[in-house]
Write a protein that binds this DNA or RNA. Structure first.
Lengths: 259, 259
DNA sequence: ATCATTATGATCGATTTCGATTGATTTTGA
DNA sequence: TCAAAATCAATCGAAATCGATCATAATGAT
């Protein structure tokens, strides 16, 4: 075997792998191999060790970070095109965040993509009730204000009267909201009334309400009503959304973006 | 043996090794050999000694600094004596939590151990401002209420006026508090005034205040005053705490437990 | 001077790490 | 659904590294 002149020490290499996984949220075996100049066998062995240590989670094709289990879905069901769209939507949303602005981040996977992008911004203030978003921003990034409240495990968000106590004290320039469903007739709906209430309070206290929802949410109606369309300023969705949605909403004065 | 003109003395050489490891985070045996102009056998013997002294951690191919190892989770560090004590303290604290009670969990590593133990209890309500504790209880466990507020990265807790807004709305049976320092003269102190204020509000709204602090915190005084001893009902520490502490505090009506 | 002690270097078999190969498994795309 | 492609786990051999042992040199005590 012809080893390199200065090969990295095994633990050092594994640290690098861990960081790469963490920064990207996900890393492919092949990419790691090229990056670290070792064989795939070594990468796999390292990933095995890192998984035992609880540092990363292995998936077919590579590994995902433990910090944000968000990306599991990206790997777990490749059929879910929505992940790619969600990423695009988040990237578009990022362009709306101005210098030194304050933004609210709702729960949900799309806003979680946005959270990751916002990590680079240290000039802004992020208000959120999502534990996942909180975790994403825990190490570094913008100023973070968290709404308290009762923890709802299923959505990993804070809800209930205690969270609105905090929300009523603040005002954000832009609120990036997720949703379970949106349709022209019933407006925005979600599963839990408590959550719907929180979303409503946020919307009322935000300069602009920006709805992030991929086209799979179109024409879906859920149990709890959040608000009507007149509360929404901008909808960011994707090309696959039915034409008449775009048309009708724009007629109603809502900006619709299709990145 | 043909020694060099000015060979470094052994302890001096080991110091140099230690510095090289520390600066680089890692160092290879081969690099150290070239750098210090001695044989690999000598390097290995030095590393063996340095490892015994706890200065570096040996790995195949070289050594890594202890500092880089330290950033790992408090739970990984089995050798850390304070960790063992903290674990014992947390286990003792757990016995104080009654059925269907509500408890507050402060930030800090000791309370984090307690959080892990509380994960098994689904009958209780946990109130906390610690993101780490939140994460620990995110998947399953007791009902969790989180205080909102401004996120303080260094302690990974929520502080400031927004967190007290929530705290004033609730009342807990027992508050498990951590601290940076405690001494007979100055009472309980911590680093940040904002944090101290939160702790004070919690203490006032708790049925019982239980201070969890290993003996390394004894006679330490930090910047911000939290409270005097009359606010504390129970102190859980360890055997290594000076005798006069135990004596004086018990005389003042504070229960001192030494698990 | 002689001897014990310590530090260092050299050698050699044992262990560990790594890469390549092969056959099994999973994913992808028709 | 089936077949091709990608990915994986297992195995083996080569190279690096390691630990143990012994030899040599410097140092200091007797």
């Amino acid at each position: 075997m012809i080893q390199e002149a200065h090969p990295a020490l095994a633990p050092e290499r594994r640290d690098r792998i861990r960081n790469l996984v963490r920064e990207g949220g996900v890393a492919r075996v092949e990419d790691l191999r090229k990056n670290l100049k070792v064989s795939v066998a070594t990468i796999r062995r390292d990933l095995e060790i890192l998984e035992e240590e609880g540092k990363v989670k292995r998936v077919h094709g590579g590994a995902v970070s433990m910090e944000s289990r968000l990306e599991e879905s990206v790997f777990d069901d490749k059929t879910n095109l929505a992940s790619k769209q969600k990423k695009k939507i988040a990237e578009d949303a990022l362009t709306l965040v101005g210098h030194e602005e304050s933004v609210f981040l709702d729960g949900g996977s799309t806003t979680l993509f946005l959270a990751r992008l916002l990590k680079q911004r240290t000039d802004i203030t992020v208000v959120t009730n999502s534990v996942r978003a909180m975790e994403e921003l825990a190490d570094s990034g913008p100023r973070v204000i968290f709404t308290g409240g009762e923890f709802r495990r299923i959505s990993q968000t804070m809800v209930g009267p205690l969270s609105t106590v905090v929300l009523e004290q603040i005002r954000v320039d832009k609120a990036f909201m997720g949703t379970m469903g949106f349709c022209l007739k019933n407006g925005i709906t979600t599963t839990d009334p408590n959550e719907a209430y929180v979303k409503r309070v946020v919307s009322e206290n935000a300069g602009q309400v920006i709805l992030l929802a991929d086209s799979t949410k179109a024409d879906k109606v859920s149990f709890a009503r959040v608000s009507d369309w007149d509360q929404v300023d901008i909808l960011i969705t994707d090309q696959a959304v039915p034409k008449h949605f775009t048309k009708t909403l724009r007629k109603r004065g809502i900006k619709v973006r299709l990145p």
